[in-house]
Design a protein around this nucleic acid. Structure first.
Length: 797
DNA sequence: CACCGTGGGGTTTTT
DNA sequence: CCCCACGGTG
């Protein structure tokens, strides 16, 4: 158990603040030793982390201990001392926001010298940059497209369909999840463990994964996982390329190391091998992305993986008051798998963490609203308050209440700008203009707005595209010259193709913002929303305008699209005074004066599913989440639990979270139970007991949770054995994704000649009258003379 | 081909 | 309870 001094005597005036007062002993000593201005104000450990430039370094930085400051100062130090040029430093973050922030802060410290830190960015951005330079070595072209999750699922659906797998029983989404997980662990299709592959479509998981990868290569596309996985493959298969980057990156820094997954770890290890100047900063107690493939083990094993590593612990917290820090530290001390840090603060004890029980979630929302209004009346800005929830579904009730109260709020996270329907449609148009071979983009918009081109038309396009191994739009160009489609569809499609050809031509001659506007206008996309009478339409039009506006910040369309596919968030400059509402996950890295934490109930938090699926590890991750939540607060942390909550529409009674039991008595204050609550005879907790603090695992909460999870487990997992292989679905050579029409043509030359007897699926038997490239004029026995594509006929008698 | 009704399923989320 | 995706109908 970690002991946390909450109000011990301050050890000296210098410890009270980041910056020693000028003239103080410490300041004078520092000035004498090394007058580098950027080092001023660092505490001893922070300074050690900055100055230990050589060899592997692990900085264990607890919440609020100045982690970003250490990273940025370290970069400044490397540049200022001449140890490295900006281009010789590799600095990796997880989010674009973190990358942006780091860039700004480095620039602030070292001025224009930091310009051009070309290798500061997210894992994925850096992976992309490297891949584009050597794309041909991994079977891509340098202009490969990056697929988002939507595209990925659409593509997988096609693969499943082609393989005759019922995507009801085996959803593409699920397969996408599996593949994602495999990629996170750097598993290529060949390396997927047999047992795991068996979990999908009767053991065909790995095979489908392989087929998906083939399709990606054909489309000249990479998904997010590939950005890393393919660069690993590049490094492994081309040691000369790897050696080049190893030499280039003299110093490597990694932020949020606890969030790295296996692929990222392998990638780092490859790149860091030569100089071994790898500095990882992280906090094992803030690892909350295990479900997404993050491996806490990476940080726990650092000293083992990089022998001789310097380990620096940053334990002085500059953010929270004593009570909050003590509560958070005691809570996290219940975890076993941790490196262990003892957070200290020299701040005042401050207010105790409050715990409030509500009758139901509605009352909980009401109490939070009232508290916020009370604080606001006392002069606390709303922007310094946040409500942090475990799952997004909790937000609506809170929002409803805030709306009723007229309390301004903003939801952080949620569907992001570039994920909105209208934005993705607009982007798909632009992708088609820039990259006519982008099949997934074309499919997305080819009937948006509705222009009468439906599934039937799409199937015809697909059939020819596959047979001829050409992109959809190219296939369409052939098809509109024949009579495969009904005249109406043919004309519509021809017009659409003509538009795209025109737009693509304007790429060179027209400013890209104007072009984008023109595309949306002429395609009828803008008009579609103008005509729409629904409530969202106006907002969508606004968003489209915003999209055009943001285009101005880029030199051309391709660089804009690259940015979008890697950076899914748009920068918010909302400076209004509003309360923030977000999930605990979204809150990592942020801080507020007052933090409201509703929903601390068994089943919700810790989340039942996390417990069911990951047992003890799941529980520990939930506890880290609780720790993250508490440590977001500077002055006030307010916990809530409800005795009744609606889960999937059904009311059920709930009991307080075991995490509440794990908070030390002396740091919390149980606020007056609201009247309604005393009527409830639900779930005993320490709130109605004489002796409140017993072992957590003996509480009714724990026992009930156990009972529940047993019940859940037994109710699951039956059935799933009937998918069967659809008979007749053939699988051919590597490029035969679908066992349909036999590929005979590569696009322009036909193997048919006049007089051949042929059979067409739609028109029946006939005789070839003339051949023009891949187009045939056929006299059909029943349908008369038609112009068709050779890929739609078979040799017949 | 478009619309509407039903049914199933429903953490957390970045890149 | 609420959102989505699919299947049937006009």
């Amino acid at each position: 158990m970690t002991r946390v001094p909450t109000q011990g005597p301050a050890s000296g005036p210098d410890d009270l603040a980041h910056t020693p007062r000028p003239g103080s002993l410490a300041a004078r000593a520092r000035a004498a030793a090394a007058p580098a201005p950027y080092l001023a104000g660092l505490n001893d450990e922070q300074r050690r982390a900055v100055e230990a430039t050589e060899g592997p370094v692990l900085v264990l930085a607890g919440a609020g201990t100045g982690k970003t400051r250490v990273l940025t100062t370290r970069i400044a130090h490397l540049i200022a001392t001449g140890l490295a040029r900006p281009s010789g430093i590799l600095a990796v973050t997880f989010t674009n926001k973190a990358a942006r922030e780091m860039k700004e802060r480095v620039a602030h410290l070292v001025g224009p010298a930091a310009e051009g830190m070309p290798w500061l960015g997210t894992f994925h951005a850096i992976g992309t940059k490297i891949l584009r330079r050597h794309a041909e070595l991994v079977g891509l072209r340098s202009d490969f497209t990056i697929l988002d999750v939507d595209d990925q699922i659409r593509l997988l659906k096609q693969v499943l369909q082609a393989e005759g797998i019922d995507d009801k029983r085996w959803p593409a989404r699920q397969l996408a999840g599996l593949i994602d997980g495999w990629k996170n662990r750097a598993l290529t299709p060949q390396k997927v463990p047999h047992g795991e592959a068996a979990a999908f479509a009767h053991g065909r998981g790995a095979e489908l994964y392989a087929l998906y990868q083939e399709r990606l290569k054909i489309l000249n596309a990479a998904d997010f996982g590939d950005l890393l996985l393919e660069s690993i493959r590049l490094f492994q298969e081309h040691p000369d390329v790897l050696a080049d980057y190893q030499q280039r990156f003299r110093y490597i820094l990694v932020d949020e190391y606890q969030d790295t997954n296996v692929a990222q770890y392998l990638w780092l290890r490859l790149v860091a091998q030569a100089h071994r100047n790898l500095c990882c900063v992280g906090d094992d107690d803030q690892s909350i992305y295990g479900w997404r493939g993050a491996e806490v083990d990476n940080i726990l094993r650092f000293e083992h993986d990089f022998p001789g590593a310097t380990v620096v612990r940053l334990e002085r917290n500059y953010r929270s008051t004593g009570h909050i820090l003590a509560a958070a530290s005691h809570l996290i001390a219940h975890n076993e798998g941790r490196l262990g840090k003892t957070l200290r603060t020299e701040d005042v004890p401050g207010e105790k963490v409050t715990i409030t029980g509500a009758w139901d979630s509605e009352e909980e929302a009401r109490l939070i609203g009232e508290e916020i209004e009370a604080l606001h009346r006392k002069g606390h800005p709303l922007s310094e308050m946040a409500v942090l929830v475990r799952i997004s579904a909790q937000m609506r009730e809170i929002e409803d209440r805030f709306v009723q109260l007229g309390l301004p709020y903003r939801v952080i996270g949620g569907p992001r700008f570039y994920e909105r329907l209208e934005i993705r449609d607009a982007l798909a148009y632009l992708r088609c203009v820039v990259q006519p071979a982008d099949d997934l983009a074309f499919e997305r918009i080819f009937n948006t707005p509705k222009r009468g081109l439906g599934d039937a038309t799409l199937q015809v396009l697909h059939a020819h595209a596959r047979a001829a191994r050409i992109p959809l739009m190219e296939a369409a160009r052939f098809i509109v010259e024949t009579e495969e489609l009904k005249p109406k569809a043919r004309k519509t499609l021809r017009d659409l193709l003509a538009s795209f050809a025109r737009w693509s031509q304007s790429l060179e001659t027209m400013p890209h913002t104007e072009l984008a506007e023109m595309v949306l206008e002429e395609s009828g996309y803008t008009e579609m929303w103008q005509k729409d009478r629904s409530a969202e339409a106006a907002g969508r039009l606004e968003n489209l305008k915003e999209l055009i506006r943001s285009l101005e910040e880029f030199p051309d369309l391709p660089s804009f699209l690259e940015h979008v596919s890697l950076v899914m968030d748009a920068v918010e400059n909302d400076t209004d005074d509003r309360v923030s509402i977000m999930t605990l996950h979204a809150a990592k890295g942020l801080e507020f004066d007052t933090v409201f934490l509703p929903g601390w109930e068994e089943g919700l938090f810790p989340n039942q599913r996390a417990l069911d699926e990951n047992g003890r590890a799941g529980l520990e991750e939930e506890r880290r989440l609780a720790h993250v939540g508490l440590t977001r607060a500077r002055r006030r942390a307010k916990l809530y639990f409800a005795s009744n909550r609606r889960i999937h529409g059904l009311w059920s009674s709930t009991i307080p979270s075991r995490f509440i039991d794990e908070l030390p008595e002396e740091n919390v204050e149980i606020t007056e139970a609201p009247v309604a609550y005393t009527y409830g005879s639900y779930g005993q907790s320490r709130f109605d007991m004489a002796e409140p603090f017993r072992s957590s695992y003996a509480t009714p909460g724990w026992q009930r949770a156990q009972a529940n999870s047993a019940g859940w487990a037994s109710g699951r997992g039956a059935g799933n054995f009937a998918a069967g292989r659809v008979s007749g679905a053939r699988r051919g050579g590597p490029l035969m994704i679908e066992g349909e029409l036999v590929a005979k043509s590569t696009g322009t030359t036909s193997s048919f000649s006049a007089g051949d007897r042929v059979f067409h699926l739609k028109f029946g038997p006939g005789t070839v009258a003339a051949v023009d490239g891949n187009k045939l004029t056929v006299d059909f026995d029943k349908a008369g003379r038609k112009m068709v594509l050779d890929s739609f006929v078979e040799r017949g008698s």
